[in-house]
Structure formats: C-alpha cells, structure tokens
Design a protein around this nucleic acid. Structure first.
Length: 494
DNA sequence: CTTGCCGGGAA
DNA sequence: TTCCCGGCAAG
C-alpha cells in the first residue's frame, strides 16, 4: 500500500517546459550539485496536470497540458522548470528550496533567509515559473482542499511576503509524515523530498510553525514511514525518482499494476463506477459551470493510478473510486485513512480550453482506460456519444479554433493534388483560394456520403466547381489533368 | 443544356 | 502510362 506514495504532485499546476533531448538532464545525481544548474533548452511548455508513476519503468510521467490544451506525457527527466530539469531541481530543493529556485532562474524573490517550507513548493515554483495563465492554470492539492482556496489567484497566493494565512487555513487535514529518525544525510534528503512532495497538498506543513523539512509534524500515517524507507535506497543513489521498481524496494508493492488489480479495476471501472463516470461525463460536457470560478475554471479530481485516468468531479467520488477500485477496500465503508489522497490529483480545468483535451483524459471508454498512452492525441472520428456531444458545440468556439489540430481536427490534407504547375498566375491563384477553402471545410460529410454511394453506381456529382467551371474552356491548359481527360477532377475534389 | 466523370480505347 | 473521347447521369 505504500507505493501509493509514488505519486508526485509537487509540480502539478506548475508551468514547465520540456526537453525531448535525452540524457541531458536525467536524474543522475552528480553529487556535487552540478546537475542542478544544468540547463537544457526548453522545447515545449505546458502546465503539469498530473504526475503518475509507472511501476513498470519505474519512472514518473508528467502529464502536461500545452497552450492549446493538448495533453502530453513526458518523462520526469524531460520536464524542465525554468530550464532546469525538475529532477535535479527537486533534489536541490531538499536542501534549500529558496536558494535552489533562485538558481538558474535568477529569481530575485528568493532573497531572504534560507528558511524553507514556509509555503508550498508549488507556489514557490509558480513564482519562478513563467507567468501562469489564469485561464489554464491548474492547481493540485490534496483532498480536502477547498474551493475557496482554489479561487484565489494563484499568483497572488504565491506572491512575496509572509505566508498567506488565508491560504493556510483553508485546507483541511492531510496526513503528514512522521518525523523519521534521521539516519544520515540521504535520509534527510528523502525526508525533505517527501515533505516537499507533499507540501503542495499538505497545509499542515505549510504552517510556518512546522519549521524546516526535517521537523515534520509527528502525526503521520504509517504509509509515510514505509514510503520513506522504501525510497531511501533509491534516493541514496541519487536518483530522485521515487522509484519503487528499479531497485531496493521489493517489499513495496506496486499496486497500480499488478495484473489482478488491473483486471479488477477494469471490471469494476466499467461496472460499479459507471455512475461516477457518467457523472463525470455529464459534469464535463454538459454542465459548464457547476462550481463556477472565474474563467469557468473547474476543479476535477483525477485518479493517478496507472492506467486509470479517471476524472471525477468530487474528491469524495475519487476517493471512493480509489478506495474501492484500487485499494480494494470495502466499497460501502466510509473508512478512509487518507491514503486515497495520494492517488488522485486535483486539477483545475478551464472548461473552455480543456474540454477536448480532457475528453481524452476522461476514461469514459474502456479503450482509454486500458491503453497505456494515456493522452493520445485526440482523434476526432469515431467516439462514443460523450465525445461527440461535447465536440459538437465545441468546435465552433473561438477557443477550439486556437487549437484546431487537436480539438477540431479538420482535414487539412485537402485533395489539391494537381500538378505542380498549378501556381501560375496570381489572378488565378486568387481565384482559386476561396474555392479551395470551401472545398476543404466541407469535404468531410460529402466524403462519407460518397463512400456510401460509391458502392452503387456513380459517384454523386460534387458541389465544388471544377476546373472547367473555374478556368473555363478557354483556359483549358490550366485545368488539372484529370479534368482535361474528362476524369474526376483532382484539383477541386468534393 | 451544361457539367462531371466513368468506361473504354488509342497512342 | 498517358491521353482522349463517347456517353451517361445529375443538376
């Protein structure tokens, strides 16, 4: 049960960049801090939606949402915060968060006593990260996090100055790790890391009275200890991946992926959880503003269990889901030791921008829940009604236009296959442009009809003007070859 | 009637 | 293959 700790949400909600470059900023700890300042060129940017641990590879996968709302997964090593690999940065965080964050990012706000843990790393990181777009900013907190809290402007919340009391008092109970007896440097590391990881969700630790990371409040859940010891050895190796599978932690089960569990999950996820799923679907796609937030932001709870991308609208729902489906606890028991908290992530979603992306994220279909590529590029065609219903109204919106490639994928490979000689005179080009456009945009429905009709005799006459009409007989040399040969026009297809 | 293009044939 | 055209069917 303790491998549930292998979920890192400390970066959730933070804007990061990524580098696809391999081997540059891996989680190899050089031991001299060198890795901390290593930077790589950011390639892509996005907000961390979630992080999940893949026990099979032993690595973390961060789910990033790009500006366009597209969801992608990146290995932890590829995630850069201010150009710094988060893996490295995190290690540094263990020792001196403030210093670290200023490091590389050259952030001024980190002047001040090297006191750590006064606020959530999430917020801290926000400070150093690029400006968070309020529209797309996602936050993640543990269960019990309140809506009120999430209403706060994330930037304001992370602004300089004393820790926000309001912020601190808003969150409710989160189990906090017991202060494990330090048995060495590395142990502290782990401890600190653990705390940091939980900071974004653990308001108790945010409290200034909590002191430095090592002085974590006592009331701990057993899982913490287990996790700490479990991750100890991997941490000593300098690998801050909380890797449960690669070494040293045979005793740590990897609940997310035992086959049995998986099977059980798949079954149950389609069975007892159907209600919740429909609820989710409904919530996502039909009710635009149930928990109204500025900019139609919505708080969702996403299950981080491997291969389970379940997203529910309520924390209780997701807890129940985790408890029953993943933890195998009695479904009707309300007992919760809070462990479920580690299995889900609260995500804030701008429904306008994200709905499409989340549709792929929402495991409303068995395929989605089963297939490892958790966030495949949304593939518009054939989907279940849920997708269709939400896609329909969405496509015409300006937002979706901003990301046509993922949201409303309109065929762009139109059949303008005429010979290269097409670009001849400007006048003709101008003439052709609008026509082409029309052809493209309405190419799909007729195509479907056409395929149907082809089975019959003749292909129904296309609506688009063909070369003959466009250029006229007098410019027959401008026609596409097909037209010239009295064949189906290749230039202006339907 | 015009237009698109299938089917078939010639080069 | 490439090119051409008779002829059909849709509009």
């Amino acid at each position: 049960m303790n491998s549930k700790r292998l979920v890192d949400r400390s970066l959730v909600g933070i804007r990061v960049s990524t580098s696809t470059a391999t081997g540059q900023a891996g989680n190899q700890h050089t031991g001299d801090g060198q890795s901390f300042s290593r930077t790589v060129a950011p390639v892509d940017c996005g907000i961390v939606l979630a992080c999940k641990h893949d026990p099979t590879t032993g690595s973390f996968l961060y789910t990033l949402m790009s500006e366009e709302g597209a969801l992608k997964e990146y290995p932890r090593e590829d995630v850069l915060l201010n150009g710094i690999n988060v893996t490295a940065g995190k290690e540094k965080l263990l020792f001196d968060q403030t210093t670290v964050l200023g490091n590389g990012a050259a952030d001024h706000r980190d002047a001040g006593p090297p006191v750590v843990q006064k606020r959530s790393p999430t917020h801290r990181l926000n400070m150093n990260g690029r400006k968070l777009d309020d529209q797309t900013h996602l936050e993640s907190r543990g269960m019990g996090r309140r809506v009120e809290e999430s209403k706060r402007d994330p930037l304001a919340a992370s602004a300089d100055g004393p820790p926000e009391e309001g912020y601190l008092h808003t969150s409710s109970h989160i189990p906090v790790p017991r202060n494990r007896k330090p048995s060495g440097h590395a142990d502290k590391e782990v401890m600190a890391a653990t705390v940091l990881t939980s900071l974004s969700t653990s308001p108790l630790v945010l409290n200034p009275q909590s002191g430095p990371p090592a002085a974590v409040p006592e009331p701990a859940s057993r899982g913490w200890k287990e996790c700490l010891s479990a991750s100890y050895s991997s941490s000593t190796s300098g690998n801050w991946s909380w890797d449960a599978s690669d070494q040293s932690v045979p005793s740590t089960p990897s609940p997310p992926l035992s086959n049995d569990v998986n099977k059980g999950f798949l079954l149950s996820s389609q069975g007892d959880d159907n209600t919740e799923e429909t609820e989710t679907t409904h919530f996502l796609f039909e009710d635009p503003i149930p928990r109204k937030r500025k900019n139609s932001m919505k708080v969702m709870f996403k299950c981080l269990w491997k291969n389970c991308e379940k997203v529910l609208s309520t924390s209780s729902g997701i807890q129940r889901h985790i408890r029953t489906v993943h933890l195998g606890r009695n479904g009707d028991s309300d007992y919760s030791d809070g462990e479920e908290d580690f299995y889900y992530s609260e995500i804030e979603v701008n429904m306008d921008t994200l709905s499409e992306g989340l549709s792929s994220l929402t495991p409303t279909s068995p395929t989605t829940a089963t297939s490892p590529p958790v966030f495949p590029a949304p593939e518009p065609a054939h989907s279940e009604p849920a997708h269709i219903t939400q896609r329909g109204p969405l496509c015409p919106t300006p937002l979706s236009q901003s990301a046509p490639s993922t949201l409303c994928h309109i065929r762009t490979d139109h059949a303008y296959q005429g010979p290269a000689a097409q670009i001849r005179t400007v006048s003709i080009g101008e003439k052709r442009q609008p026509l082409q456009h029309t052809t493209v945009t309405k190419s799909h429905p007729p195509a479907v009809l056409a395929s149907k009709a082809t089975t019959g005799t003749r292909k129904p006459r296309g609506e688009a003007k063909k070369c003959r009409k466009v250029y006229g007989m007098e410019k027959k040399d401008l026609w596409c070859t097909a037209c010239r040969w009295k064949k189906a026009c290749q230039r202006f297809t339907d």
